[in-house]
Structures are given as C-alpha cells and as structure tokens.
C-alpha cells in the first residue's frame, strides 16, 4: 500500500526539530504544518516576507495585506515578523533557514532537482525555488514516486531543466524514503511504505539506490 499525501506529509514532519525555521512549498509540503508534533516549536517562513505564519483566517479576519507565498490569506502569531523580499532571501541565501520542504518533477541520484519548467510548455517561472534549494541547509523533496504515465521521477540524470544542481538531501515518495549520497551519486533506501516490495520499487525507480 502506497502512502497517501497526508501520510507523506506526516513522514516529512518527522524531519522537523524543535526550534527549526522552515520553508514549506506549495502542495503536499503545505500539509506538513498539520503534523507538527504538539509541544514542538517550529517557525514557518513565507518567502514573500514573513516569519511565523499562522493558520488561515476566520472569514471576518481576512486581510488583503497578509498573504503567504501561494497568495492565500493567512494570519500572524504573537512571535511573527515582517520584512522585505531582499531581507527574506538574505535569510534564505545566508543559510539561516534550517529546512526547505518542496515538491519536484524529477530528482536525480546526485541530488539534482527539476521542478520549474517543461520545455515546450508555458513556463510560469521559478519563483523562489532556485534560491531556496541553493541556500537552505537541508532540502527535502516530497513527491509522487512516478508520473501519472508511470514514468519514473527518480532518475540517473534529470531530463528537465534544473532548479538546482546537487541540492536534494532527502526524498519522500508515496512508496519509499531515500537519502541522497551526493558524493557517491547514489540514493540510500531508508524506508519502504507498508506492503511495498523492493522489486516493486526497483521497477519504478531509474536512479541507482542501495537498500
């Protein structure tokens, strides 16, 4: 049985540590905030200029001046702070953010990440993704193991244009969890989802990995 999106988010939440400053991408990574263990203090950064993102507002609290990087309305917390885009990316580039959790189209066995463009299709832009993967200390990718077509997304080399070279540290898919050994250019299988066999995983993974 493959993991659900929520189970993948719960697994990603196990990478959090007390006191961490974390940036969560759009999609499954956003769900990670629902799985922060009680009593653990984790501060969420929104790269449009906020530390300490609160929950979505009640209908009567909606404020046009307070949105997250996905352009959704949010709220502030007593510990929140606001700053400019250049300050925001100074803390990203400067290595002050402990963890970035984001989605991906492809990840290669050397840690290369592709998640911003498909040649021939309209490109929306990379937003802050290139800055985050280049600057944040630890990069965790959460994604489906294969494309809808069944094609593998964990590859020997990315075929899509890169968001960052050798930047991914950990990959969580619906089938398994891998650590990236960048110097050996090999993935290391850490966990299998319940009921997923090694053969099943090998059939769906192009990247080299050791079990």
């Amino acid at each position: 049985m493959a993991w659900t999106r929520d189970e993948m988010a719960a697994r990603a939440a196990r990478e959090l540590q007390d006191g961490f400053y974390v940036n969560l991408g759009i999609g499954i990574p956003t769900l990670v905030s629902n799985h922060i263990p009680p009593g653990m203090s984790v501060t969420l950064q929104s790269e449009n200029g906020m530390l300490g993102m609160g929950p979505f507002p009640l209908a009567d609290e909606v404020d046009a001046d307070l949105i997250n990087a996905g352009k959704q309305t949010i709220t502030e917390l007593p510990s929140s702070s606001y700053f400019s885009s250049s300050d925001s990316f100074a803390m990203v580039r400067g290595g002050h953010i402990n963890l970035s959790i984001l989605g991906a189209m492809q990840v290669a066995q050397n840690g290369d990440l592709a998640n911003w463009m498909v040649p021939g299709k309209m490109v929306k832009g990379m937003g802050g993704a290139m800055d985050l993967v280049a600057g944040v200390k630890r990069v965790v990718v959460v994604m489906e193991h294969c494309e809808k077509s069944g094609a593998p997304k964990l590859l020997k080399a990315c075929t899509l244009p890169l968001t960052g070279a050798r930047v991914v540290d950990l990959v969580i898919t619906d089938l398994a969890v891998f650590a990236v050994d960048k110097s050996a250019e090999t993935l290391k299988l850490l966990e299998l989802a319940d009921g997923v066999t090694l053969d099943h995983l090998r059939d769906r993974t192009e990247a080299r990995f050791v079990a």
Partner: peptide, 25 residues
Amino acid sequence: PQGTLAERIRAGGAGIPAFYTKTGY
C-alpha cells in the same frame, strides 16, 4: 529567481554593480 530579483534591485539602489550568488548555479 525571486531572491536574485530582489537582490539585483537592492544592489541597484545601493550602488553595487553586481554580486555573486549560489542561486541558479
């Protein structure tokens, strides 16, 4: 990249003609 855009503008206003960044390498 968003951070590069922000920093290019900051540099423009601060009289810094260019800078180095890991972003996009």
